[in-house]
Amino acid sequence: MSDPMSAPILRFDGVSRDFSAQNGFFGRKRTMRAVDGVTLDIPRGKVTGVVGESGCGKSTLARLALHLLKPSIGHVYFEGNDLAGLKPAALRRQRRHMQMVFQDPYSSINPRFSIRDAVMEPFQVHGIRHTPAEGKERAARLLEMAGLDPQLAEHYPHQLSGGQKQRVGIARALALEPNLIVLDEPTASLDVSIQAQIIALLADLKSRLGLTYLFISHDLGLVRYFCDRIVVMYLGAAVEILPSTDAPHRHPYTRTLMESAFLPDPERRRAVTRLTGEIPSAFERPPGCAFATRCSFASGRCYAEKPVLLTTGRHAVACHHPLD
């Protein structure tokens, strides 16, 4: 921790987040644990990928990272500061340094805002004033950075395609020159051709501006291409942390994910391992391993005892019977 450049930019320390739902007015209050005891360092200047299926808590983790949601248990430290300990004004100032790009470009821009308004809003919020000419110039430069024609500044969101809107989202995130950007499935609702464009843009911006990314995705193929490190989540918990994209996976769930990814190569068709069993409900978590019901290696121990995330070297896995 002595060298500030080697210290992680973001740290999750035993973070859990519960949501409660009530069945009707007099109904029983039920609690769902969306994120369950995640401890994770996000190294500076790297792309950390978080991959998992819907309901695995990856989007909740993204929001916990930026304190858009408060942790129920545990702490999130950004640049060493516990975000929950900050006063509202201090937290708002801190948000300059950590930004987010959202999944749905169609609803992430206020329909009443022109593209210029949307890109300039971060400055307005932080009381950074521009003369009209400066503002115009600044917006144009941000749009250019995101690969957009500066002429689009006068347009409204409904006049733009999904890919263009996502570029606006990126321009907005860059406005305040942040250190960390959380990318919450930024390409999930785009065509593959546009997805590849956006990923190329993000890679270029990262190397030019020295950004750190937390990249949330359901697409393991994409995560393996784009990220330096991969966190695999299942039912709210990190089950495996791969230190590099070519590290051999050790958790049976990661293997299932790998096998499910469709390669663009008809010569290498895979027989899909049949998954039996349903994903357990996050309202009633099993006492043992959450993946046991679908795992072909599951033993009695897996149903009874919850595996903890054990780190060997830089590789971490939470499994009683890890693969070799």
Partner: peptide, 24 residues
């Protein structure tokens, strides 16, 4: 060819996924 190239392959080198410029 470009459409096939939009999907990252196993072990694809960083920076080689470019997509198709422009839009439909």
């Amino acid at each position: 060819k470009a459409l096939i190239g939009c999907i990252p392959r196993e072990g694809q080198a960083p920076g080689t996924l470019v997509g198709i410029p422009g839009m439909v």
